[in-house]
Write a protein that binds this DNA or RNA. Structure first.
Lengths: 144, 144
DNA sequence: AACAGGTCGTTTGCATGCTAACGATTTTTG
DNA sequence: CAAAAATCGTTAGCATGCAAACGACCTGTT
């Protein structure tokens, strides 16, 4: 009875759904929230740079950027010195989302960790870190 | 720095990718493996019953069943006494996948848990269980 | 018996991921 | 300097999820 994989998947799905619901109240979908978190600190990155930081592929980032552009969160602009590059810049709406989105994120994390003991919190973190390391062994994206 | 949500998401992605790679060697994609696991024990369930057991929506199950039918893993047949129902029956190929798929699943779970201490294993399980319970509070799908 | 309402599976449309193939641009090399 | 190679973003096609709307079928009430 492979309990762990199933439990992990189910829990992830609930967590993702809860996050999406909370973010959606502020016009941001779950997949866009991490992109914003990077852009708030480093505006004007390229899709490739963002993809690397987020651990997704470039096509995924391009699609996400397209949806975020359609949602009015950012704009695309070609780099002047290297015409291959595209730079993504936040709009006012993208910047204004910072406070409410981070607050929503904080609340979910708090809700989740509140149910755990101090030991469970510590253990969960170290266990996930070890699993992450094990599975990313021999990969090119060891960024976390 | 909301470490936990990010770490959880990243780890889940790696785990899912590793599972998909292992399953794909036997003609089964990651989303189909849990469906098979149920059908091996209870052949002839309906899409709705399967969806409930797996914690996914009925449309998702219908799509997955369509892909599994195209892959030759199962067949659809209308229920004779209640024509609203569709029953999903495994093909020989679907049954033959049982041993290799369960073996692949076992190996991944072993690889993951091997990196953990006994305490971490126990804690991870109880932490996930608690988080799952917290997030599914006030929901209609408390099945695990 | 007839109709209203409930129960199904399906279709449609979207979000999020991936890989593979392509086109434009820059850099490297011969 | 021109051709070859590397680097980017994009597009296309697939897998997996969701919610909403639909059509077919059954059931219960009148």
């Amino acid at each position: 009875m492979s309990e762990l994989l199933r439990l992990f998947t189910r829990t992830h799905k609930l967590l993702r759904a809860a996050t999406d619901a909370a973010m959606s109240e502020h016009g941001v979908r779950v997949g866009q929230n991490l992109v914003l978190e990077v852009l708030w600190k480093h505006d004007g990155l390229t899709p490739g740079e963002l993809a690397a930081r987020l651990g997704v592929t470039t096509p995924t980032m391009v699609n996400t950027a397209g949806r975020m552009e359609a949602a009015g969160l950012l704009t695309r602009r070609r780099d002047e010195t290297d015409r291959r590059l595209v730079r993504l810049y936040l709009t006012d709406r993208g910047r204004d989302a910072e406070a409410p989105v981070q607050e929503a994120r904080r609340r979910i994390e708090e809700r989740v960790t509140a149910t755990l003991t101090e030991e469970e919190r510590r253990c969960l973190h170290s266990a996930l870190t070890k699993i992450y390391a094990e599975l990313s062994a021999g990969r090119s994206d060891p960024i976390l």
